[in-house]
Design a protein around this nucleic acid. Structure first.
Lengths: 335, 335
DNA sequence: CTGTTAGCGCCTTCAG
DNA sequence: CTGAAGGCGCTAACAG
């Protein structure tokens, strides 16, 4: 069923039907009535693809994340979706599994599909590939990780270095001086910034960071486990560990338990993003919690704003405040 | 940049360019060469929306789930996405928050966007609204919950009643006779089937199900908490609880701990879908684990098959085997 | 107030 | 092997 058929059936022109469907332009009361009726009868639904082609925009947002099953990202997505649906936009969600190739591919596909904007937690793809699009005015909003771009992008994120300093300071305040850190690839800014903040904080406290206790690998559980195991093989082991995300921490904890050690008595742990909804993880894990839902909704709002004043190429950098959630995993004074 | 511009620039017709872009129809070797070059130079990308309009199909799958942050669904989505991307299809993901209205709205929007097929974990919307679409051959694949439809739909799911019987039997085998069950709305088949299996198992074991220990509410943590609390107010309380999903169970456990009781010593617990990736939830929770990723990928494959032999209206019902994961939460003999 | 018409960007017969 | 032309379903001038 389409416009044309309806029009024919009612002996009016397609444009009249179109106008009443869209509520644009004046249409006679009774003709409108008849048309609305027929629409209800036939269950006519406009073809969005045709509309998108005409309008040259699909009223769709693309979201590219590394891992859907990571609750941080799923909350971001919910935030994006809320704003999108308030504006009658759709959301395309893509999962890159932290693979740069997939990320580039998905961005390309989304662009081909005429998305109105992109929300990206990049894992380091060469976003410059998409410079033409960015310049052409399609808003790219980065969350979490910074891209390899100069200035021409929007950003919604926390200050990772600062957050890292604050959680490290907490460990120091508990009396720890032998603190290890594990993080993901340094080409991701979340990783490098968190490491930077960690180092800075130790230095500010007159502690020399031990290079052997700095693990740079991936953001996956398996790496956290391997790294921690290695550290524990040595007699001289850290008394506290900071992990740059929750998966790393879960891996680390597994290694700690395997070694028969206790948290926090033998080793204190803290990390980013561990937000236990169940309340059953024990001990509770001290963590920096990012406002994930807000990150998503604000990112989407930026795109909406760009849709309104198109052409105006202007970029927003929004910094949100995380929360330092204190739990048992890091408690107990070592001083 | 579009087809027309490229054609003009190279002094060939649009059709020739189109043919070489798509690799369809013969094109002279050197003209092809020139065109391919120009494509690389200009970074031309075909407009998918226009293609979709022409083709009258968007090569897109829609997925409708109740809650993205539920790991069961995020795994399903990953499964769908894998198959989709293997076939160069895109995935639209929608989150209904368990609201029937949102579900109907999203299905409508997806259809308007000419998706090639839908994967739906329905929360009970009146899918008959979409009967015309189903009849017109757009494949609807249901997972998890059964729709209010006769026969004309595809299904990928586990046998919920059977799974429920088996986990209940496990509790009985541990010596329990005072077993409670909490579940979601009965208009969702996962809920009603699981309750059915529970009842059946008790009866098979000569145990009369106590109606006061059967809680029918929502699938949310908050309800699990409230229900459990109520049960615990009474002197005569169940010695084991089965929850129809993990959120309910987390709520129940919270209530149990608040009451100062121990798991499994005072009360044994078991549920559906609690798949602890962290390994830190303690005690570990006995649960029926559904093969979520496979459910998603098989659902997507069904759609792909329908794309190939279109017109052939045929429906597949696929039953997958869940796993009964035994953990401490239900261990210890009460007999 | 309503109808006619020209595209949106691409694909695909049908001629040449 | 290549070009011209019509049309996918809808919207938006532009006329009437």
């Amino acid at each position: 069923m389409q416009l044309k058929d309806l029009a024919k059936q009612l002996n009016v022109s397609v444009s009249t039907v179109s106008r009443t469907v869209n509520g644009t332009g004046r249409v006679g009361a009774k003709t409108r009535e008849r048309i609305l009726d027929a629409i209800k009868q036939t269950g006519y639904q406009p073809n969005e693809v045709a509309r998108s082609l005409k309008r040259r925009s699909a009223r769709t947002l693309g979201v590219v994340v590394a891992d859907l099953s990571n609750s941080f990202y799923s909350k971001v997505i919910k935030g994006v979706e809320k704003v999108a649906s308030e504006n009658s936009y759709n959301v395309f969600v893509c999962n890159t599994d932290e693979e740069v190739g997939k990320e580039e591919e998905y961005i390309r596909v989304l662009l081909q599909n005429q998305v109105s904007g992109l929300v990206i937690a990049t894992v380091g793809s060469d976003v410059r590939l998409f410079q033409p699009y960015i310049d052409s005015g399609i808003p790219f909003v980065f969350i979490d990780n910074l891209p390899l771009l100069e200035e021409r992008f929007n950003l919604v994120a926390i200050d990772n270095a600062k957050a890292s300093r604050s959680i490290t300071q907490h460990l120091v305040d508990q009396g720890h001086r032998k603190i290890a850190m594990m993080t993901g690839p340094l080409n991701q800014s979340t990783s490098s910034e968190r490491l930077l903040g960690f180092r800075k904080c130790l230095e500010d406290n007159g502690i020399m960071p031990e290079e052997r206790w700095i693990g740079v690998g991936t953001f996956k559980q398996e790496y956290g486990y391997r790294m921690m195991r290695e550290w524990l093989l040595n007699e001289d082991r850290p008394t506290a560990v900071l992990a740059a995300n929750d998966f790393l921490m879960y891996g680390a904890i597994k290694a700690i338990y395997e070694r028969g050690l206790k948290i926090p008595e033998d080793i204190a742990v803290a990390c980013f993003d561990a937000n236990d909804e169940t309340g059953l993880i024990s001990p509770g894990i001290t963590a920096i919690i990012q406002p994930a839902y807000e990150i998503g909704s604000i990112a989407a709002e930026i795109i909406m704003r760009r849709e309104h004043d198109k052409g105006r190429k202007q970029y927003e950098k929004i910094e949100l405040e995380p929360v330092l959630l204190l739990k048992q995993s890091s408690m107990g004074n070592k001083g």
